[in-house]
Computed example of a mutant assay.
Amino acid sequence: MDKVTRLASENGIVIFSKSSCCMCYAVKILFSELRVSPTVHEIDQDPEGMEMGNALMMLGCNAPVPAVFIGGTLVGSTNEVMSLHLKGSLIPLLKPYAALA
């Protein structure tokens, strides 16, 4: 749990992902199209990945990945991120981290 919370708070936008997960890929592409560069932690490539996945579930994720944190706060998984985006609420959260257009 400590590793997840530390990593989530070290950068503005953090995605915990698995390299073979299509939903993780979709979230990463969305952020790319919105011109933000999240820090991505591929938990399937981390020796502590299983523990990290369990910690993410304990923090409230429905599935361990993707888990998106913005400003150190858990936003959620694909459904929550896409819902925020469709409501127009995601871009204001990302604005401090977006590339200058």
Results as ranks from 00 to 15, higher is better:
Gly76Thr: 05
Ser37Met: 11
Ala99Glu: 14
Ser83His: 08
Asn79Lys: 08
Ala98Gly: 07
Phe31Ile: 03
Ile15Tyr: 06
Ala98Gln: 15
Val40Glu: 12
Thr39Asp: 04
Ala55His: 01
Lys18Trp: 05
Val75Leu: 10
Ala26Asp: 11
Met57Ser: 12
Pro47His: 12
Gln45Cys: 11
Lys28Tyr: 04
Ile70Val: 13
Met23Gly: 03
Thr39His: 11
Thr39Asn: 05
Gly71Thr: 06
Gly72Asp: 01
Thr73Ala: 14
Asn79Gln: 11
Met50Pro: 00
Lys87Val: 02
Ser83Cys: 07
His85Glu: 11
Cys22Lys: 10
Leu34Asn: 05
Pro92His: 05
Gln45Ser: 14
Phe31His: 07
Ile70Leu: 03
Leu94Glu: 06
Asn79Cys: 04
Pro38Thr: 07
Cys61Val: 00
Val14Ile: 08
Phe31Met: 13
Cys24Ile: 01
Met57Val: 15
Cys22Ile: 15
Met52Thr: 03
Leu34Ile: 01
Gly88Arg: 02
Glu48Tyr: 05
Phe16Gln: 07
Val68Trp: 04
Phe16Met: 05
Tyr25Ile: 07
Lys18Gly: 13
Gly71Met: 02
Lys18Gln: 14
Pro92Val: 05
Glu51His: 11
Pro38His: 11
Met82Glu: 09
Cys24Phe: 01
Glu80Gln: 13
Glu51Tyr: 02
Ile15Thr: 06
Val68Ala: 03
Cys61His: 00
Ile70His: 02
Ile13Asn: 05
Thr73His: 13
Phe31Arg: 07
Met82His: 09
Met58Ile: 13
Leu56Gly: 07
Gly60Trp: 01
Gly12Arg: 08
Ala63Asp: 09
Ser20Asp: 14
Cys61Asp: 00
Asn79Val: 06
Val81Phe: 03
Cys24Trp: 02
His41Asp: 03
Ser17Ile: 02
Ile13Thr: 02
Ala99Asp: 14
Cys24Ser: 14
Ser17Tyr: 07
Phe69Gly: 01
Leu74Lys: 02
Lys18Ala: 15
Cys22Ala: 15
Val14Met: 09
Tyr97Ser: 05
Gly88Gln: 03
Pro38Met: 10
Ile29Pro: 00
Gly49Lys: 06
Ser83Glu: 13
Asn54Cys: 10
Pro64Trp: 05
Leu94Ile: 02
Glu42Ala: 08
Gly53Asp: 09
Pro38Tyr: 10
Lys18Met: 14
Tyr97Thr: 02
Met23Thr: 12
Leu86His: 12
Tyr25Gln: 12
Phe16Trp: 06
Glu51Leu: 14
Asp46Arg: 08
Met23Asn: 10
Leu84Tyr: 03
Val81Cys: 03
Asn62Met: 13
Leu90Ala: 04
Thr78Val: 09
Met23Ser: 11
Leu74Ile: 08
Cys21Asn: 09
Asp44Pro: 00
Ser83Ala: 14
Ala98Val: 13
Ser20Lys: 02
Gly88His: 01
Pro92Ile: 04
Asp46Gln: 11
Gly53Ala: 15
Ile91Tyr: 00
Phe69His: 01
